[in-house]
Nucleic acid binder design. Structure first.
Lengths: 217, 217
DNA sequence: CTAGAATATGAACACTTGTTCATATATTTC
DNA sequence: GAAATATATGAACAAGTGTTCATATTCTAG
């Protein structure tokens, strides 16, 4: 009855379905879910509202689908799944990579929209909150703390509470991503925030690393 | 025509006006502005919807009033305005005070609701965004960086970019406040986050302070 | 206590919203 | 190219929305 119908490359159907999702995401993330009407979505893609109901049962299902996509989004997969042991040994480079990933994601249109949707719906949609908490927050912080723990064993960084450190590393990145999102909304310059991504990694690393010799500069 | 009408202690009018604002804030912060109906607000205070229009021109004006109150809210005044020079000399104690203030505010019902309203409306209401940016973010970070700069001059902390440090101190506190807000929404335990407020101050201070003698513990 | 003002009610309005459905058009399959 | 299927249209509906207004009730001065 539903499922993937396109046997060939990409049937017309699944193309418009994708277009609906893309359009809806843009509007939801800008005006909010409740304030976006089915007519808004249809209008933005040059189609009548009733057409959408051939692809989605109702408005809610559009949101549900977008939320479902969140789980597999880049926003929740900060780590390339290479060997943890190896990754940890790279020390600062690992952290720098995550910092860069955060920064790049802040400027990726698709991710930006998903982030804004997440932020707005989190406070009133329990499922979104769950996805944020489990996949976006917990999973990443936990993985991070594992890496940090390994770095401690390798004596690359000072011994300390790994989970606390993971939070301290994660929080500013999240915050700066939010700041970028807000600034872009008013078309303001983001350059000052951009530099904060890198400065954060630098500052954080200097705070935790074990100095090999002297290195006061 | 409007203005404050109550000449005596507290006229019935201004009491219900306050009650409307209180009720609306609770609902707006829970369900979002758009999803909250005038009937919801009236119903929650056991009154018919038309009654509200004796106190506010329309639904929008209720939101506008709440937003206006934001500016004078505790959420945006992190600092007791004592002498900056003196404050800076207190070093870690100053930072600890701010950390504690953040933590306490996270558990204050009124502040929590305002925070949630702020977070949800920020992305679609330019005025809210402006208030967040100017009063909540910029003002506090700027003041913080001033204090940090003074601490550098007093040689309490290492020389570094004060604005960057201010952001690094501010961001996690903001993030943890958000986490508390989310956890409380599902009535989950907040204890692990609570401890992060203090650990953050500790970690941050250890990262920037100048060690008087040796002090590896 | 009474006149006048402030506030609440009930009912209605104009409008928007999500959704349905019969019908028309396009697309795919054979 | 015709049959079958998928998709789009136009029109309509029922429910919900913000708002108004005449009227009733409550409160407050004098």
């Amino acid at each position: 009855m539903d499922g993937d119908k396109g046997t060939s490359a990409l049937s017309k159907g699944s193309k418009t379905k994708a277009k609906i999702l893309k359009t809806a995401l843009k509007l939801f993330s800008t005006k909010g879910y409740k304030a976006t009407t089915v007519r808004d979505i249809a209008g933005a893609m040059g189609v009548k509202q009733s057409a959408l109901y051939n692809h989605f049962k109702n408005k809610d299902e559009i949101l549900e689908t977008l939320i479902g996509d969140l789980t597999s989004s880049a926003i929740v997969h900060l780590f390339d799944d290479r060997d943890p042991q190896e990754a940890a040994k790279s020390g600062k480079a690992l952290l720098a990579g995550i910092g860069t990933k955060f920064k790049l994601l802040s400027f990726d249109g698709q991710n930006e929209a998903l982030f804004k949707l997440l932020m707005q719906e989190m406070f009133r949609n329990e499922r979104v909150r769950e996805i944020y908490n489990e996949h976006f927050y917990q999973e990443n912080v936990k993985k991070l703390s594992t890496y940090l723990f390994m770095m401690m064993q390798e004596e690359l960084i000072r011994s300390s509470d790994p989970l606390m450190l993971a939070n301290e590393f994660f929080a500013p990145l999240f915050f700066y991503q939010m700041q970028v999102s807000l600034l872009k909304q008013d078309k303001k310059s983001t350059s000052s925030v951009v530099s904060l991504f890198e400065k954060h990694v630098e500052f954080f690393w200097e705070s935790i690393r074990i100095e090999k010799k002297e290195s006061f500069f």
